[in-house]
């Protein structure tokens, strides 16, 4: 399913999208499909499935640790695409990874693997718009969305340039820093959301971990909320994981339904 269709469908139901991030292969390769099922059961609309990289510079300690667990468990791009192809889900899947894994596999091969396994979009936090030419061309040819990020420090001029390149949605980084559960939804968050003027869906992430924060983000005008580290924390605890993932998703999804 294309991301645009999903956002449209939700808009028609007056719902905000809940995008749930987990790292594929964390804590082991077999657990991922059950984890994804729990997130969907709780109400996740889009799944961001991390493909772990050895040097995740945009991630805080929580997702770094998840990446290390997944790599130790043997996760790699071959197994990732195999795992994704075997997932039996009805929601769009987005691959979040770092550029070197794409570069090394070869852009064309990577994007074709996305198509054949059922990945709808790509988020590459270390690939700014300026460096995206080759990947963007290939993605548009193959019908895979390439999602770019904007941050509170992004100038209006850059926002415009990025909006001209992003597809599927635009990822708004809520605050300075790396991924993690630490947050306060500040004036800077509302400011950046309001500065991104577009019809393209706006999904906001980094540091959102509960329903209360999600509500504030929705209030500020987001079309989607992205939650990652909070789910990864649950996975890391090893304690009643699937039930707690489902519960947290349900809680956050509840504030995404506005009627």
């Amino acid at each position: 399913m294309r991301l645009a269709d999903k956002f449209n469908e939700l808009k028609n139901r007056n719902e905000t999208a809940l995008l749930a991030y987990v790292c594929a292969g964390d804590p082991d390769i077999d657990s991922t499909s059950r984890i994804v099922d729990s997130l969907i059961k709780g109400g996740a609309d889009i799944i961001e499935l991390g493909l772990p990289f050895s040097d995740p510079v945009a991630d805080g300690p929580t997702i770094q640790a998840a990446s290390e667990r997944a790599l130790s468990a043997g996760m790699n791009p071959d197994r990732y695409f195999e795992l994704v192809a075997n997932l039996d889900v009805q929601v769009p899947l987005v691959c979040m990874t770092y550029y070197n894994l794409i570069y090394k596999r070869g852009i064309e091969r990577f994007v074709k693997d996305c198509v054949s396994s059922g990945i709808s979009g790509l988020i590459i936090p270390d690939l700014p718009a300026e460096e995206s030419h080759d990947l963007a061309n290939c993605c548009s040819q193959e019908g895979v969305d390439l999602i770019f990020l904007v941050a509170p420090v992004t100038t209006d001029e850059r926002i415009e340039m990025i909006l001209s390149k992003t597809s599927g949605f635009v990822y708004i980084v809520s605050r300075l820093g790396v991924t993690g559960t630490r947050t306060d939804v500040t004036a800077a968050t509302s400011d950046i959301i309001s500065r991104v003027r577009t019809d393209i869906p706006k999904a906001v992430g980094f540091g959102i971990s509960n329903a209360e924060q999600a509500a504030k983000i929705i209030e500020a005008g987001a079309d989607g909320v992205i939650v990652g580290s909070a789910f990864v924390d649950i996975i890391a605890s090893g304690d009643n994981v699937n039930k707690r993932l489902e519960d947290l998703t349900t809680e956050i999804k509840a504030v995404c339904r506005r009627d």
């Binding site: 990020l149 941050a151 992004t154 980084v173 820093g177």
Partner: peptide, 19 residues
């Protein structure tokens, strides 16, 4: 120009691009 032949560039998170 940010490159040396095919090498170099600016492969960083968007947060750092303005900096």
């Amino acid at each position: 120009d940010t490159k040396y032949g095919k090498y170099g560039g600016q492969f960083v998170p968007e947060i750092l691009m303005p900096a």
